[in-house]
Design a protein around this nucleic acid. Structure first.
Lengths: 204, 204, 204, 204
DNA sequence: AATGAATGAGTGTTCATTCAT
DNA sequence: AATGAATGAACACTCATTCAT
């Protein structure tokens, strides 16, 4: 309906220009409606931006969730999730820009919003790590925040690779996913097997 | 001298508010000087921002370089570099915000500036990976852009962990470094040994 | 409508303060509207000034044209034109200041604009001179640029007298016109009759 | 001395940029001195501009005076004065711009200054007209303000022709002077002879 | 006699936001 | 349900002017 057109326009403008450089005039024009109408449906620029973040965050998590079948083994689930993630971000670069760049660049209200999505994904990955450990018949003896850190790293790597894959010619989403899978899975596997790298002692 | 005070203030304001939301008035006030003086030393908002980026990029790469001793083995060098990286970003969160978020969000002149630094770091890591392979008496039979992707992933993971460590209470730079080392080093080791994860075929 | 109020105000301020010293704030205030509205209707200070010049140039040439009946003899036409010119400039001193002083003092875009009007008037006068010669059954044997010079001189004299009549108490537009007619017409007549003044030779 | 260098620079900058667009920085730089020195010798931008006007007004009137020999007949004196006028303005275009355009464009203090010079010249011409009448053994039965008007017109024509001659290629100062002489002298002569042009009555 | 260093006040311009309809 | 018309508040930037030396 009308509101979706506005959000479409807003995501496009916000994604390309950035939050501050985006003008409500431009958004209204691209949406094909008058400016007061934008204010009628969404109350302010802040609210509009928040709505964009929420919609796109949901869309992204939905896309990842939809790509994963719970009846498959953990590595396959991770692979499928990554595939879905890279595919979605590649198909919706403006949305990804809003989530990954713009929202985090502008203070509290927005960063919080996108952090929620991020935590959801991190939780999903954390869960997979745990499942992988269970499937390997090996209790994850890693401390809890170690697991959280691993997931955080994995997600960060994925985000970085998404930007890399979207801007580097000749690199496809599939390749990015493969690279990350290689990197992550064998790393995780090693950890599961207890082969952890030990930092040098302070006096070394 | 006077110019450094201004850059200090600018980094703080840019880091917290973002490039566009930062006002020259506020920067001048925080620096304790008049606005025209800021324009006398640094010519425009753009130039001021560029100067911030350059100074902080140099500071960060210097900090990492200073933390690494070339006479130590590759894993130790990576560990030390990560330590230095996490420590520096933890100590200078506004500078890190400028480099990691603000600079990349605002058009060509700035993104290019920070991309140069990033590439330097990626090159550093790529180099370490190669050295690690040599030290393991094993030629890295990975294709070149696979190596680039790995470095990209590693740097992205580091960036993500930096934010995580800086905002999550109870997580230190050392722990972040440990987590990443565990994740990365063993993953890389696996890859060096040829244990790569194979994606499922399309029809699977 | 609204735009005319703004132009009225702008002509007044520009005419009194000059282009550069005039502030958009003052113009908006005098027009009784907000500054953004001025920018909405007329795009910039430059455009606003150009619009003033164009409007007043048109008004002045229209006034002169309207004062002249083509079915009357040349001297009467010149007289009527002068009357109209002096009357109009006396009634619109700010407009005259804009055209005669301000527009010519500020760079290419504006000087060109007003030069067009001036040339139109010079052409009008040149035409009258030629007609006068024809009516006197005497081909104007003056070289072409001599005629142009005469017209230029006449217009300059008129401009000067306009300022004089507008600022000297007790001098009316009619008197100024009479003075100039006396001066010019008999001078022209003399020239038509071949009574030209010969400059002394270099060695005299 | 030092002050003259500054005035030279100021006249050049004021003449080219206009009063408001001229910056004290630029003037000081062109004069080869520091800005505070300019303020030490001449107190403010206004005073500096006034000093420029005064110096150049004096220089111009001096030049005209110097070109005229009191022992020659009136027409020759007028011719010589015009020659000197056109020559001086052609040689010092920036000074002429300051006097003719800039000074009159910017409010009271300056316009008054240049008006004084103008009146001096007008008085000079008025005097010549009177002498011419005496030499023709003919009392000037023209009313006083008629004479003033004639002089005003003549000066205006001269000013206009000066600009025309300085900007139109192929027109020399001498030609301009000849044109004006032709125009003026025969006009004046006619008037002296009582051949005045009579305006139509109101009911005509 | 001369200046390097500094600023208060003001400029044109833009934009999120709101009435009146 | 929708908009044309309007504005308050802010921004980047400049410049005449003045100290401290």
């Amino acid at each position: 309906m009308r509101e979706q057109q506005m959000l479409d326009a807003a995501v496009r403008i916000f994604g390309q220009r950035g939050y501050m450089a985006a003008s409500m005039d431009e958004i209204a024009e691209l949406a094909g409606v008058s400016k007061p109408l934008v204010y009628l449906y969404l109350n302010s620029k802040e609210d509009l931006f928040t709505a964009c973040i929420r919609r796109e965050a949901t869309a992204l998590t939905e896309a990842v969730r939809a790509g994963v079948r719970t009846d498959l083994p953990a590595d396959r689930r991770l692979w499928d999730g990554l595939q879905a993630f890279f595919a979605h971000t590649a198909e919706h670069p403006d949305a990804w820009s809003v989530l990954h760049l713009q929202a985090r660049t502008h203070g509290e209200p927005f960063a919080t919003e996108v952090a929620a999505m991020r935590e959801e994904i991190v939780a999903f990955v954390t869960h997979l790590v745990a499942v992988a450990a269970r499937e390997a018949h090996r209790a994850p003896d890693l401390p809890e925040h170690e697991v959280a850190g691993l997931a955080e790293a994995l997600v960060g790597a994925a985000e970085s690779l998404a930007a890399w894959a979207n801007t580097t010619p000749g690199v496809t989403a599939r390749q990015a996913a493969t690279t990350l899978m290689n990197f992550a899975w064998s790393g995780l596997g090693n950890l599961m097997r207890g082969n952890s790298w030990t930092p040098p002692t302070a006096d070394a």
